[in-house]
Amino acid sequence: MTSITLDAARASSSPSDFLAVAGRVLLAAIFVLSGASKLADPAGTITYIESAGLPLATFAYAAAVAVELVGGLLLIAGYQTRIVASAIAAFSLAAAFNFHANLADQNQFIHFFKNVAMAGGLLQVAAFGSGRFGFDHR
């Protein structure tokens, strides 16, 4: 193949490019919405964190808002995607073990494995990057 043919092949989008951005947006949506709801009710969120027995609830609140809201928006944008996806995956696992570990309760069981599944999807993004439609590609 000539250089021109290779450049044309690189310039065309594939279904995988669209699936990658759709996957990022769908994964990020729950984090952006959750971060926004925490931002809207700081006192309630801090009380909930304290009820789970975690130390430094105010700091944990600020960190959760940053990871969910900022991290979610960065994931949508495809900026520093591998790092952001890894951080949100770790956050999801921490939330599963600290807030949803009562697996005898069916609701908590579902939330626990929802968080584990989201972490799995995020690790896929961390492994393969943002795809063509993200700031990382530029």
Rank of each mutant, 00 (worst) to 15 (best):
A64E: 06
A66D: 01
V125G: 02
L33C: 13
F133P: 07
A36L: 15
T2Y: 14
L122S: 00
Q106P: 10
S130D: 01
Y61N: 00
Y79R: 04
A36Q: 07
G134N: 09
A96W: 15
G121P: 02
G131K: 00
I110K: 09
I30A: 11
L19W: 04
A62H: 14
F133R: 06
Y61S: 00
A126H: 01
L122Q: 09
F18R: 03
A52T: 07
S13R: 06
M1K: 11
A89M: 11
A85W: 02
A52L: 11
A96H: 09
V125W: 09
Y48C: 02
A40K: 10
L103G: 03
L74R: 02
Q108L: 15
V116L: 09
R138M: 09
F99D: 11
F18P: 03
F112Y: 12
T2P: 15
D136L: 02
I49F: 12
F113K: 01
N115H: 15
F97W: 10
A90M: 03
D41L: 12
N115V: 13
T2R: 12
K114G: 02
Q124T: 14
A85K: 02
A62T: 11
G120T: 04
G72A: 06
P15T: 00
M118T: 08
L122D: 05
F128D: 00
S13H: 07
L33E: 08
A8G: 00
Y48G: 05
G78M: 06
H111N: 10
G129D: 05
H111L: 11
L27H: 06
S34N: 11
F99E: 10
L69C: 00
G121N: 02
V25I: 07
S13I: 07
F113H: 05
D105W: 15
R138I: 06
D105Q: 12
F31Q: 05
A52N: 13
Y61M: 05
A40E: 12
S130G: 01
V116T: 06
A40D: 12
